[in-house]
Design a protein around this nucleic acid. Structure first.
Lengths: 224, 224
DNA sequence: AGGCAGACTTGAACATGTTCAAGAAATGCC
DNA sequence: GGCATTTCTTGAACATGTTCAAGTCTGCCT
């Protein structure tokens, strides 16, 4: 129904205005300094109305994650479409991840620290984050699939998830990185990617079969 | 002055009562469910009085860390005094770390997630945490020093800090570990310690000198 | 048209972390 | 002992996240 659609569209617009306002204010003034009252006021709605669309202030962050991942995906496209070397692909995707986050450094830190709580829906391991997480892992699957790489199937299978975990480590470092332009994080990416790729390639060696199997066993145990 | 001491002692006692009450209530009911008003009431002081001793609710957590480290130190003593094998020492100290934390699993998660925020004084990298951090690193220095281990000086120097970082990773995993008795974390310790020690020992090999130097360069860059 | 159901909106009310001006208690000094 | 200073102690007041009962609007049905 066009009428129903109009109606829904209106509400959808209100929702969008609230998100836009909130994320802009978070970026400009920080997470804590931005009150729900201020968000509602600037968005032109009543305080309580924001709670009709978002169960809590934290839920607004989930929205940030979603947009963030979309931006990461877009920023990764060029390198994924042009490079075939694993190191180059991985490096490009990780640098893209930092790139799109840089404008949010400082306030992103607060957001991500909220995500550190295991019981929080914002946790990257929570069921609520499952779609975003799966999408992110799929991105690293593409990193691997588009590269020329000869490794045991057991390794290849687990690689996307491992690389995603690796990217989480980079983000964790980035959160703490106070260097100008977070250049240290960029250097960390540049210096660890070759090591990681070398390590992955080593899994081909017969002599290291025992170690490889051991590592895989640990990974599987950890995944539960 | 006995009078002055009495006075100070009284205040010190009040402070202690507040901490004890707070930590007990945190353990019994969780961090969020425990209000400052409730803590003050049970401790027998006015709400505002708690703020005379602790600038914020979070500051009470710092106290938890301090006690926690003391407990870790005590729990590590036996293995440090009896074992000389690096793997055994490291394993013992890491298991001790999990041991003493286990009773607090669930509420410790909230505490540690607060610590994830870089600007927070609770962050393990913050100036405020410096004493606790240094003490913890000193513990891992003892782990290394008491073991028979032949590795390059450059590696040995950086080992305590690296092992501390490793222990932080274990704690991070533990926080997310929902297995009964957090047995998965114990398994992670048992399975990764031999790998870590093997890796450390590999640094002796001439053939890996280039890699070792590269890793050390990264570590130094990261430390800033 | 009248009115009904559901989707949306509102602003006051509530709980909790935190601050603060005022007061009480203890200490030091004569 | 009496006064000035410092060290606590108090409870009300404030800001903010969140809830909720009540109201408004929209589209649909008869």
């Amino acid at each position: 129904m066009s009428a129903a659609e109009t109606r829904t569209a209106r509400a959808e617009a209100t929702r969008a205005v609230i998100v836009d306002t909130a994320l802009r204010m978070f970026r400009e003034q920080g997470y804590e300094a931005t009150t729900m009252r201020a968000i509602a006021r600037e968005a032109g709605v009543a305080t309580g109305n924001a709670y009709y669309y978002f169960g809590s202030k934290e839920e607004l962050i989930q929205e940030f994650y979603t947009r963030n991942h979309a931006a990461h995906l877009a920023a990764s496209r060029p390198v994924l479409d042009s490079e075939t070397d694993l190191a180059a692909r991985l490096r490009g995707v990780l640098r893209a991840l930092v790139d799109i986050n840089v404008p949010y450094h400082g306030f992103a830190a607060k957001l991500y620290s909220r995500a550190a709580e295991p019981s929080s829906p914002l946790s990257p391991f929570s069921p609520e984050s499952s779609p975003t997480r799966d999408a992110a892992i799929a991105l690293y699957a593409e990193v691997v699939d588009g590269a020329h790489l000869r490794v045991p199937a057991a390794v290849r299978e687990r690689l996307p998830e491992l690389l995603w975990l690796y990217s989480m480590g980079i983000v964790l470092f980035w959160v703490y990185d106070q260097s100008p332009g977070t250049e240290r994080t960029y250097r960390l990416v540049d210096s660890t990617v070759p090591l990681a790729v070398r390590l992955i390639r080593l899994s081909r060696l017969r002599a290291l079969g025992a170690v490889t199997r051991q590592v895989i066993a640990i990974v599987d145990d950890v995944r539960g």
